[in-house]
Nucleic acid binder design. Structure first.
Lengths: 205, 205
DNA sequence: ATCAAGTCTGGAACTTGTTCTAGATTAGCG
DNA sequence: CGCTAATCTAGAACAAGTTCCAGACTTGAT
């Protein structure tokens, strides 16, 4: 670990300073517009204007609206993850800590419901052309949950349980965002699915 | 149960015969186009033409492309449900029967992956304006799962488990459709989540 | 059979995501 | 500095979902 501490996008061919600044302005504009009016309010022309770049440039950085919003989600998840690292959950069992972590994330999203709407809709609407990016989001989420469980070397069974928890998390989020489930119901579902963790981690070993 | 056996949409103000026929032609055209090329291939102008109605009429019957595809899903689910009723799952435990049922549904969707893509994308992309219809789909799914469990009067805990299973089912479907998970992985996840059923239904009672 | 209200048709028009083009700017290099 | 390739800008153009409209057709009630 030398001075080269922040290496977020090693795959891309390295951006110049001005390009990095443009990328950041774009993501900021995207989040801003999403916070106002959700998915529909993130209009590519408006994002471009708010970020001070031409429409063509926006499309060079993010090849579609979905790509843009998924990237926005990566950004937000990174914030969340570092916040959570600073204030880890306090429950006794792994299941409790995971449920607590997810509900905390949930309340964070509640504060910006429109932004949550935009990001989650983009995530579930993404087709194959966005798979790599969506996969990154999934890995970030997995990392957050494994952190809460306090595991470094999960078993295949535990990984499967984590995947199921992620499924539940995403889907519950959607039902809440579309007004078909209350926060209370989401809480119950999260707690229910977290019991799976206890199934995969018996007292032994 | 008299001759009035098929009462599917009692909420709407009752359609004439020709209107019912139009509605059916539209749904058929929608499924047809979806089977070919998925969500993107269901273009409203093409649906209208294939169904032999004007574009404005299509929009009178289904106020958006999402409404149309969710209705298409309702239709397909109804088929599936009646098929499943005729050939109930054979597993010994409730968990086994539910997993078997869902995997069977999965294989049915595998046969028409483009159609599955169109319907599921519409379902998860739906916003609040489609909530009632999405809710209907959710209730249909719940009914199928409860059927497989063999329950008439589920406890709240069991209902919560069923909801989590539905969450997992939808989300796993999406990851499979977008090429981020294999069938084998979906199977594992379904079986994993179905273990929740055993947790809510102990040997007693 | 006739009238009023509601429905359907064909087609134009509008919106927003996406693509394309020609010319200006910038970055890297000798 | 001066050149070349890459990048950026402004804006037109295109695609598909959605809305609107004027006129023709149906339906239901009298």
């Amino acid at each position: 670990m030398t001075a080269e501490a922040k290496a977020a996008i090693p795959a891309s061919p390295a951006l110049t300073e001005r390009q990095e600044a443009r990328r950041r302005r774009i993501l900021h504009a995207s989040a801003q517009l999403a916070s106002r009016g959700g998915f529909d309010a993130v209009q590519m022309r408006e994002v471009a204007e708010a970020a001070g770049v031409a429409l063509g440039t926006l499309y060079r950085y993010f090849p579609s609206k979905i790509h843009l919003l998924v990237a926005t989600m990566q950004d937000q998840l990174q914030h969340l993850h570092s916040t959570l690292r600073k204030h880890p959950p306090s429950g006794d069992s792994a299941a409790e800590r995971v449920a607590e972590t997810l509900m905390r994330a949930f309340r964070a999203l509640q504060r910006e419901p429109h932004l949550a709407d935009a990001m989650v809709r983009a995530l579930t609407f993404a087709d194959r052309s966005v798979s790599p990016e969506v996969d990154t989001v999934s890995r970030q989420t997995t990392a957050i949950i494994l952190d809460a469980m306090g595991l470094d070397h999960p078993t295949p069974q535990q990984l499967s349980a984590v995947r199921v928890i992620e499924h539940t998390w995403h889907s519950a989020l959607i039902t809440w965002l579309s007004g078909r489930a209350s926060i209370a119901q989401v809480k119950i579902d999260i707690e229910t699915v977290c019991r799976l963790i206890d199934l995969t981690a018996p007292a032994s070993d």
